[in-house]
Every structure is written in structure tokens, then in C-alpha cells.
Design a protein around this nucleic acid. Structure first.
Lengths: 245, 245
DNA sequence: AGGACAAAAAATGAATGCAAAATGACTGAC
DNA sequence: GTCAGTCATTTTGCATTCATTTTTTGTCCT
């Protein structure tokens, strides 16, 4: 057996009904979007070799635009290209994950600092609403609901920074760890959960006072704690592939 | 012929003696490195259209690997690809520059915070040496020398963070504004210069005390001030590089 | 039977070819 | 004299083709 890609019928057909209405003018752009999603969503096992041929017939295109897309994905850090041996989904070592988490922490910390400069009362009110909604989920021990709101809060902070470049970079790095992040979310223990809630309150407090420097610290520490929990969880339950470079 | 590329004989010959010994196995990798440098160093005027054909004969290759490299450069934000109308060097608006400077400030601020966790006394001593060397340049009003050391200090801090992912991201964004940054360096007025020196002393102080949170603040503010000076300078002298050909 | 070597098969990297779109120039009308 | 429309040329986007490199398969020898 050569193909390492799960052959699930027609995963990404040529003109398969794309749920979202986004459409790229060029073929390689279209391919890029679809392939990126396909990889980010974890449809290809980590470290699996990805024969161009296979992808070509999956996507119903020739190799040229596909290869262009692969180069871009490699530049984004999602896959890696081995010379003369094709592409493989990038395998993130524990160290890579730590570095990525720290980087994300830094970016969100920056977002918080910048947000304090320009955020409006309305925006803060929105975040407060989200916070209380999240608190409800916390009280009901609804982890999934909690986590979705949590994501939206952090997203709101990044948006409030009013820095598209930062937002793009944040999205890029988020994509790299999305697969892991997902399982990491559920790694949150009860104890850590309560802690996180308190941290979120502190975040709101600093935001209300527009104390950028404080918010920056709190956000960084908050995400640092999250990182620790996530990494712990991953080393406890190594999902299929053990971490080895 | 309305080639917008300065036709300086053999700008990047096929096997032109590359000063550095770095060599990529694949052609597209080689091309990518050379084209990136070529663009970053400002050999192509901003917003200039870049016909593939021209680049191909400049580099002595066919269009396929070139186009792959262009896609990657576009993903990196150095150039932009207009559908069916080729590539152009990305023109950075003032807003783009502000965003990039802030992002760089955030990354360096993060680097400082992380560095405080693991930096050794020797590394600090190295930075102190650089600092005093820089102080010498300051006293002698040697702006060029000052600036080179300044770069090395900031580089040392990023290295001390021991985060390759951060370092790569930092290098990427630095590339985007390198052209501007270069002229911005010389924008430093006397007054701002003295200020910068004091800030650098505060940086060293926080570093010695391993106070990550403080260092983070100081670095961000330091780079914020730099940003202001740079943007001011650019709006004062909007068109053309200070050093005319 | 197991391992080493060699040839076949397949995959990758790069070049070329072809259709569609865009650019530019020329012509003609007002 | 200016502007609009049409056509030729150039350029881009993608498919196909060619040349290496890698991987697999098959055979032979120990």
C-alpha cells in the first residue's frame, strides 16, 4: 500500500459543492484554499507522504497549480517538502509546539496592548457579554460551549487591536496548531478551568481600565498556562504518533 | 520595451558567483532565495510590474520554477500577484508600515520576555559589551556604526529568546520593511538619539534583573518610539529614496 | 532462505506548448 | 483633434512533455 491518504471517496472533488461561497479567480488560489483547509482539518495523518499524483486526481487538476500551492503551504509551515521525495504533512515536535504557543501568546499579548489604545466602550461591552455567557457555560460544566465562547473572546481582542497584519499572522500560526489546539482544549482540567475563569476576569478588568501593559502581562501568562496544560495533555496521551523529529 | 526593472547588465546571472555559499538543492529554492534578496534589497521599484519573461531571462531559467518562487514571495507579503496581470512589488501604505512596526515591536517585546527566562550571564555580558561599543559610536556621533550595533543588540535579544519559530517570523517581517527601515534608521534626530540611548540602558537594566514583564514594556515602548520617528521621516520625505542613484 | 545488486517502474523537478486574457496600436467616425 | 472600436501582439495560466532521481521489483549469488 502506497497511498497514505485516507481514500474517502471524493474528499475534495474538482467542482465539489464548496460550502463557502468564497471563490478564487485563479485555479492555484482555489487549490491553495482547499488544500490548506484539507490539511488544517487534519485529513492527512501527520508525517504522511503526499504523492502529487494522488492529490492531482483528487482535485482533478494538473500538477502545475498543485505544486504552486504546495510551495506556498510549505512556506506557511503546514507541510514540508523533501527534495525529490515529495511533500509531507509537517510533524510538530513538542519543542515546535512550545515555540508556537509562546509565539501565539506573544501575539495575543500584543493584541491586548494595542486594543487598549483604541477599543471602544461598545466593544468592551460585547466582550463582557461574551464573558458572562462563557461563565454560564462554566457553571453548567459545558466545556464545548465554554470553549467556543473562549475562542470568540480571544478573537475579539485580536480584532480590537485594529491591525490586519497582526490578525493575518495570528491566523496563520493558529492554523499550524489547530489540530493540536483542538485536542488541547479538552485537556483542561477542572482546576485549571477555574483558574482560567479568574484570569479571564482579570483580562476584562485590565481592558476596562485600558491598561495595555497590564493586559499584555495577563494575556501572556494566561496563554502560558494554557500552553503548559496543553503540552502536558499531549505528552500524557500521545495521539498515534509519538513525538520524534 | 517598458521594462520597469533596472537593466543593469547581469543583475542576477544564472550561475553568478553568489557571495554566500548557501546552496539549495532545488532550482526553485535557489531562485526563491535570490529573488527574495533581490526584492528585499530594493532592486525593483515599488509597485513596478515584473514581467515573468524578463525575470526568466535574468535568472536564466524557465517560467515554472520562477512562478513557484513568486507564489511563495506573494505568500510572504513581499510582492502581490494580480490575476492575469502578473506580479508587482508590494507597495506599503503608511498604515501597513504602522502595522508592521507594531507587530515587530510585539515580537521583540515577546523576545525580551522570553529571553529573561533563560538568558545566561555570558549572553548578558555580550550584550553589555555591544551596548558600550554602541555608546562609543553615540559619543562620536557615528550614526552608521551606532546603527549596526543597535541591530546586533536587538538581534541578540531575539536569539536569547531561544525560539526558532519566533526568530523566523521576526526575520520575515523584518524583510518586508527592510527597505523602509534602512532609510528610517537615518531618520533619527539628535534628540531622539539620546532618548534611544537611555531606553537601551533601561533595557539592559531590566535584562540584568531578568524582569520579563518590565523588559517587555520597555522594548515595546522603545520600538513604538522608533516607529513614530520612522513614519514621521517617511511622511516628510515621501518620494524616492534619500540616496538617489 | 536471506541479502545484494540491477533493472524496471514510478515519482519528482523543470521545460515547453497551447489556449485565454490583457495590453497596446491602429483605424475610423464624429 | 479626440474618442471609440477592432485587431495584433504580448503575457499569463495551466496542461503536457522530457529528464533525473527515487523507489520498487526481480533475480542471482552466497
Amino acid at each position: 500500500m502506497k497511498s497514505t491518504i485516507p481514500d474517502s471517496g471524493v474528499p475534495i472533488g474538482p467542482a465539489a459543492g464548496n460550502g463557502s461561497d468564497r471563490q478564487e479567480a485563479s485555479l492555484h488560489g482555489e487549490i491553495l484554499l482547499r488544500l490548506r483547509d484539507y490539511v488544517v482539518e487534519g485529513n492527512i495523518p501527520e508525517g504522511a507522504r503526499v504523492p502529487e499524483r494522488k492529490l492531482c486526481e483528487m482535485l482533478g487538476i494538473s500538477r502545475t497549480p498543485l505544486r504552486e500551492a504546495l510551495k506556498v503551504l510549505a512556506a506557511e509551515g503546514l507541510i514540508e517538502l523533501l527534495p525529490n521525495r515529495g511533500a509531507r504533512v509537517r510533524q510538530l515536535s513538542q519543542r515546535d509546539l512550545e515555540e508556537l504557543f509562546d509565539l501565539m501568546a506573544g501575539l495575543e499579548s500584543l493584541a491586548g496592548r494595542l486594543a487598549c489604545e483604541t477599543i471602544t466602550d461598545d466593544e468592551i461591552a460585547d466582550i463582557e457579554r461574551l464573558h458572562y455567557e462563557m461563565y454560564g457555560h462554566y457553571l453548567h460544566r459545558d466545556m464545548h460551549g465554554y470553549f467556543q465562547i473562549n475562542q470568540r473572546i480571544h478573537e475579539s481582542i485580536v480584532n480590537a487591536a485594529r491591525n490586519e497584519t497582526l490578525k493575518t499572522a495570528y491566523a496563520n500560526f493558529a492554523g499550524r496548531i489547530r489540530r493540536v489546539r483542538y485536542s488541547a482544549n479538552f485537556a483542561r482540567k477542572r482546576q485549571r478551568w477555574g483558574e482560567a475563569m479568574r484570569e479571564h476576569e482579570a483580562i476584562l478588568d485590565a481592558l476596562r481600565r485600558r491598561s495595555g501593559s497590564e493586559l499584555s502581562d495577563i494575556l501572556f501568562q494566561h496563554l502560558r498556562n494554557k500552553r503548559t496544560a496543553a503540552i502536558e495533555h499531549l505528552t500524557e496521551a500521545p495521539e498515534g504518533a509519538p513525538t520524534s523529529p
